[in-house]
Write a protein that binds this DNA or RNA. Sequence first.
DNA 1: AATGAATGAGTGTTCATTCAT
DNA 2: CATGAATGAACACTCATTCAT
Lengths: 204, 204, 204, 204
Amino acid sequence: MAGDRGGPARRTSRGERTRGRLLEAARQVMAARGFGAARIEDIVAAAGVSHGTFYTYFENKAAILDALIDTAAAQLQAVVDEPWDGPDGQAAIEAVIGRFVRVFAEHADVVRVWLEASANDAHFAARLTEVRGGYVGRVAEVLAPALTGTTHDPTLAAGALVAMVEGAVTQGVTGARDGDPAAVVRTLRSLWVGGVLRLAEDAG
Amino acid sequence: MAGDRGGPARRTSRGERTRGRLLEAARQVMAARGFGAARIEDIVAAAGVSHGTFYTYFENKAAILDALIDTAAAQLQAVVDEPWDGPDGQAAIEAVIGRFVRVFAEHADVVRVWLEASANDAHFAARLTEVRGGYVGRVAEVLAPALTGTTHDPTLAAGALVAMVEGAVTQGVTGARDGDPAAVVRTLRSLWVGGVLRLAEDAG
Amino acid sequence: MAGDRGGPARRTSRGERTRGRLLEAARQVMAARGFGAARIEDIVAAAGVSHGTFYTYFENKAAILDALIDTAAAQLQAVVDEPWDGPDGQAAIEAVIGRFVRVFAEHADVVRVWLEASANDAHFAARLTEVRGGYVGRVAEVLAPALTGTTHDPTLAAGALVAMVEGAVTQGVTGARDGDPAAVVRTLRSLWVGGVLRLAEDAG
Amino acid sequence: MAGDRGGPARRTSRGERTRGRLLEAARQVMAARGFGAARIEDIVAAAGVSHGTFYTYFENKAAILDALIDTAAAQLQAVVDEPWDGPDGQAAIEAVIGRFVRVFAEHADVVRVWLEASANDAHFAARLTEVRGGYVGRVAEVLAPALTGTTHDPTLAAGALVAMVEGAVTQGVTGARDGDPAAVVRTLRSLWVGGVLRLAEDAG
DNA sequence: AATGAATGAGTGTTCATTCAT
DNA sequence: CATGAATGAACACTCATTCAT
């Protein structure tokens, strides 16, 4: 995993607990202030440890975000790795979108921070490209058969659909019925399915 | 307009030119490095003026981004303010999406920086919410008639569609046929139209 | 007390020593160059610590002067708070003036800096007014009985007498027999006592 | 006179007027903000001229204060140069103190700024020492005959008395009957005369 | 004489990171 | 493992002064 410090820490359960507290604190602080504005000071204060202890567990500020991203990325990847039927299987596509939305929503704060960090840091930009490329590519694969013979590029379409889900969840789609993730899934599913059907109809 | 320094500067055409050069330089530097990492030093070097001159025209780093955002926001708003037919007028909706995409693409660099700055700065977050709220609300209005009798919330749907366009353009869904904005517009238009038609079919 | 940085610092005796060195350095540097011209750079160099360490103990340049003033103000206040006999008790008045002169002389450098800072900074001006008001008021109280029936205002007289002591010491009325504070006390005492007796004789 | 710029300015009456406006503006701004915090920008704004014009009339910021001090110093000197009787001539001493108070009061704002500038600038400190030395020396001369045979140093006593007057006026002696300069003169005169008489009584 | 745009040296302050205890 | 004091590089910002017009 990225972001660890190989050293002595994490051998004992006490160290494990401290590390966990730091991760949770970093997540909260970065969600609240953003990556750039989050100070180590804030994180250690939230975790209830001393300043120096931070560096027992993480090499630097980037490393702790990296560790946070590890978790989110793994779950995002899992959605993609699971079996996935074509766009015609309504229930299947709905399940996939549902999982996407749920995972994104669960990690929306980390993803927001990740997006911000990508603007300044090539490493985070690369990880983003890699992870996004992974699931956009998978979606494109699924879309491809339906789009043969049309003028639409599967990767372009996949990117747009994924951006729709990512944006809808990351931006909070607030103003609407926040409280009901099921409603969000339902609407996104219809937009996705309807959009894909339309693409398929556009003859070359 | 936000982002100006009230009094002294910009009375002569020479001053006007300097201010313009600073804006262009800021745009380039911030697009390349992001807002946080962009140093005044970089901006003035790119503009070919001295360090102090920056502050003749802008109160601080945030102010010059504010000025950049003024332009982008005005054009985004213009797209929304123009007459706009219902979702059935195919040509009309295509034109709107086309304009949206074009404006977003034209200011994609500024929007990216704006997104980053929003993570740290309440002012930019508020401006983003305001501008986004404006066009999401307008799209929702247009969608509303088609969605009566369905379970879909117009604002939620509008937010998702706008996120799709914003994300597709901002993230440079490139990787695919970059060079062809017309292709992007065509695919986004089909996804949008198809998605909306599908929503309308979903009976409550 | 004003001038501290709340939390982290000053828990260990090492920190305590560093803080003390900074205070002493600030006192010397400000006495030599004045408040405005004293640079943090000069202070940390004199204290033998790094630039950043300054901010571990004091929020900014004003805060360290504030801390210096805390000490001076407390001692000035102490002179006033001690028991104090009427203007007739010769020995008593001499003791008070002596203490005044000694405290002023001991903190003359800080008071000079304080006076300078008051010209630019409302906070220091307010503290000065407050402290001065305190002992001028006390002196006026003591003077009041002797001045009933005369045309003299006790506060005015007290202000003038205090200004005499403050000015004599602060300006280093030196040039004359510097080395001998006792001589200064003796002369000031006679001027003070003689002046007050004269005021008392002036019938309304 | 110190503080002028020899050049083209001040030849025409228009130039003369501009120079006067700058002096008056500098006086106001420096009185309000202090010397250090007064910006050329503030002064030219108050004078209603452009930034560059300042340097047509004064070499730098110090020069304009120097010019202001010229006037005050000359009048202070005049008080001292006028004929002056011994400490026994009641009317005479009262007249001198009255003139002192009046001149100090008239230029109190400039003197305050001058005091502040002396803390940072050797030139102003030197001028202050020179001017003060002048009138303190004169007062000491006058006092000397009365103090022969006592333990009191005339210069020390003179310094204290002058500090009393200077302090009383410069600090606004507020809290008391501000509005009545005559009352201030009366009280200061009694303190002065009573003090001196007492000194004279102290046998060596 | 006047204007105001341009300059750039100077300095306060922040904060990630190190290290002695 | 934990602590928190110390470090110092990095930057934003100010403002007196110059100079082309």
